[in-house]
Each structure stands twice: as structure tokens, then as C-alpha cells.
Simulated assay, not measured.
Amino acid sequence: MNREILFIQGGGGSADHEADAKLVHSLREALGASYRVHYPLLPNESAPDFGRKNQIGRALSRLQGRIILVAHSLGASMLLKYLSESEVDQEITGIFLLATPFWSGKEDWKQALKLQEDFADKLPEQVPVFLYYCRDDAEIPYDHLLRYRQRLPRATVRELARGGHQFNEDLSLVAADIKTL
């Protein structure tokens, strides 16, 4: 029986989907045939959150059984938003977040992306959370990881010296962690 993984892309549209497809390919290769990785295209919509909460909900509703969630960049922050603000019927067995931005500030465009102050308390209990960050990420500043570390003290944090925002297109470390579940 295959284990189900939902991978949520960073950014939006086909260009970001294509860029993250290399991450998905690496994950599939490292996990092998006993895992099925679902990778839906999430286009930017005109909604303030780019439509991500609804898109993530629809993608999750198509899966059954125990589900592992993996998300990159904007997708990771929106996955946290979805999980902390929505009713989730599926059994989530692990949450793996890569290069996750922590939205803050008073700009209007950021308001729909920001997490609620108590978001960590609303995540599924007993579900392991993993945070991955490359120190040479030129897109997501290191202090974003530090904020998540403070808010999610139970999370396992994996800091890599190199890999940039796209983790050198190598998610073998993520796959190794997934296999521990």
C-alpha cells in the first residue's frame, strides 16, 4: 500500500510549479515506489491569499488514508495557515516545511498571508513538524526560521549550510525524515 504525500509548491503559477517539480522529482526518487507524491498545480488567483487556502483544501480532500504534507516557501506558509484555520478531516502523519516565510508587517497585501498569533496551538497535536532551511537562502531571511523555532518549539529543525532556496534540488534529507514516520 502506498503512503500518500501532498507536495504544495512555492509561489504560484506554472513557472514556480516547474521550478519546484525538481524538488518533487528528488523526493520521489529518494522515497521510492512505496510512496505516492501528489503535486497539483496551484495557480495564483485574484484572492488576497492567492487562493491557496481553498486550493490546499481541495487537494487534501482528494486524498484518503494517512497523509504526509510537504510544502515549499509560500506554499509552506499557506499550508500552516490552512492547517491552523481550517477543519481538517484527513489523518495527517507528518508536516515538512521547506524555506517557510514568516509574514509580518502592516502592508495590506500581507494581511491575508499572516498567521494568527496562536497558530501553533491550532496545528494537529501529536503530528511531527519538520522545518528545513538553507543558510544561503537568498529569498527567505534566516530570522524567519528563528521566529518559527520560537513558535514551534516541538518542531525538528534541519539547518543546512548550503542549498539555497531550492535546496540544490535535493530533498534526500526530507525523504530520510519522512521514512522515520
Score class of each variant (00 low, 15 high):
N2H: 11
E4L: 02
I5L: 02
I5T: 03
F7H: 05
I8Y: 07
Q9G: 11
G12R: 08
G12V: 06
G12E: 13
G13Y: 08
G13Q: 13
S14D: 15
S14V: 14
H17A: 15
E18P: 12
E18A: 14
A19R: 14
A19H: 09
A19F: 04
A21H: 08
A21W: 15
K22D: 09
L23I: 09
V24L: 13
H25S: 07
S26C: 11
S26L: 12
L27Q: 10
E29Y: 14
E29W: 15
A30Q: 15
G32N: 13
S34C: 12
S34F: 12
Y35I: 08
R36W: 04
V37P: 00
H38I: 10
Y39E: 15
P40K: 09
P43W: 12
P43C: 15
S46E: 15
S46R: 15
S46V: 13
D49K: 06
K53Q: 11
K53S: 07
N54D: 10
N54P: 00
N54K: 12
N54H: 04
I56N: 04
R58L: 05
R58F: 05
A59N: 05
A59F: 07
L63R: 02
Q64P: 06
Q64M: 07
R66P: 11
I67R: 04
L69Q: 00
A71P: 02
H72K: 03
S73M: 09
S73R: 13
G75K: 08
G75E: 01
L80T: 00
K81F: 02
K81E: 01
Y82S: 02
Y82T: 00
L83E: 01
S84K: 05
E85C: 01
E85M: 05
E85H: 01
S86T: 01
E87V: 05
V88I: 03
Q90S: 11
Q90Y: 06
I92W: 00
L97G: 05
P101M: 09
S104W: 14
S104G: 08
K106N: 15
E107K: 14
D108P: 07
K110F: 14
A112I: 05
L113Q: 07
E117A: 07
D118N: 04
D118A: 09
A120L: 06
Q126T: 10
P128Y: 00
L131T: 00
L131M: 02
D136K: 09
D136T: 10
D137T: 10
A138Y: 06
I140K: 02
L145A: 09
L146D: 09
Y148R: 01
R149D: 12
R149T: 08
Q150A: 12
P153G: 04
A155C: 04
A155K: 03
T156V: 08
V157S: 03
V157G: 07
R162L: 11
H165F: 08
Q166D: 14
Q166H: 10
E169G: 09
D170R: 03
L171C: 05
L171E: 07
S172A: 09
V174D: 03
A175F: 10
A176W: 05
A176T: 03
I178F: 11
I178Q: 07
T180N: 02
